[in-house]
């Protein structure tokens, strides 16, 4: 406990970010309990109702409660954002590590494939993948995760290449340490900092990619709400007439991205022993 208080004092911004993320996760988990109304029930008479007593954050075109949809939408949006970032970064890190460490033909192939993938926009890649896999939550996560891999792989590979030259890696070879162990003990921990920065930066774009996919009918199927879709469905049409349809999902997305960035920065500093004392 005292350790927690100490950390909270050292990283107040990180704590704030962590609290924001935690609140959203709790919201997603307990959506059924928290949400005042059913997110799927339509009410033609409440169509585009402004924020008020019944619909605290207003209602959409079909008269569904925005607040309840936001709370339920956290499930899909967070699952997609965290899931895709986690899978994409993890696989990218693994590939980058092997690519930079082993080198040779493996590296050559990985780098060329990564270049081809990077030359396509994230959305186009995801489109192609979901179109071939079919719309579902898991497929959406996979479709968004795969295009993340090359970015992460390249950053990690560059990092590994410079780490390989360091004397302590050479010293590890000199004591007869095996390659896998050197990678796990000396190289991997030192690539964490760029990885965390990259992952938190990508969190926001994954939520938006999901939005675009859903908008095109390739994301998580209707009528289940996600923030991205709530935003993209209404952005063009209702920005002027019913701005609450745009503002509140936008605020939710921004808050998660902001929280993740704050938390990520603190985590990076915490994991670096040089930032201690």
């Amino acid at each position: 406990m005292s350790e927690f208080i100490y950390l909270a004092r050292r990283y107040p911004l990180g704590l704030a970010g962590g609290v924001i993320l935690l609140l959203f996760v709790l919201m997603a988990i307990f959506a059924n309990i928290i949400a005042p109304l059913d997110p799927l029930t339509t009410n033609p008479r409440a169509s585009l109702a402004a924020p008020g007593t019944t619909y605290m954050l207003g209602a959409d075109m079909m008269g569904r409660d925005v607040l309840s949809r936001l709370i339920h939408g956290a499930r899909i949006s967070l699952a997609v954002a965290l899931g895709a970032t986690f899978i994409g970064s993890g696989l990218g890190m693994l590939l980058g590590l092997i690519s930079g460490y082993v080198g040779g033909w493996f590296d050559l192939i990985v780098q060329r494939v990564a270049e081809i993938m990077q030359s396509l926009p994230l959305l186009v890649m995801a489109l192609v993948i979901t179109a071939s896999l079919g719309p579902s939550l898991v497929n959406t996560i996979i479709a968004i995760a795969i295009p993340l891999i090359p970015n992460v792989a390249r950053v990690i590979r560059a990092n590994v290449l410079s780490l390989r030259e360091l004397n302590y890696v050479e010293a590890a070879h000199a004591i007869g340490m095996s390659n896998t162990r050197i990678a796990a003990l000396h190289v991997l921990p030192n690539t964490l900092a760029p990885l965390i920065v990259l992952a938190t930066a990508q969190l926001g774009s994954t939520i938006l990619t999901e939005a675009s996919l859903s908008f095109l009918g390739l994301g998580v199927p209707e009528p289940y709400p996600s923030w991205g879709r709530m935003l993209s469905e209404s952005a063009a049409e209702y920005m002027r007439t019913a701005p609450w349809l745009v503002i509140f999902p936008g605020v939710a997305i921004s808050a998660v991205v902001f929280g993740a960035n704050l938390f990520g920065d603190a985590l990076r500093d915490y994991l670096d022993p040089r930032m201690g004392d």
């Binding site: 302590y168 010293a171 000199a174 004591i175 007869g176 921990p189 030192n190 670096d272 040089r274």
Partner: peptide, 24 residues
């Protein structure tokens, strides 16, 4: 086989900063 021999020959580097893993 070389691994076993490594016990008997070691190296010390010039740069006291890059020769130690900062995270250990």
């Amino acid at each position: 086989e070389m691994r076993n021999l490594r016990k008997r020959m070691q190296i010390v580097f010039q740069d006291p900063y890059s020769s130690l893993n900062p995270r250990r």
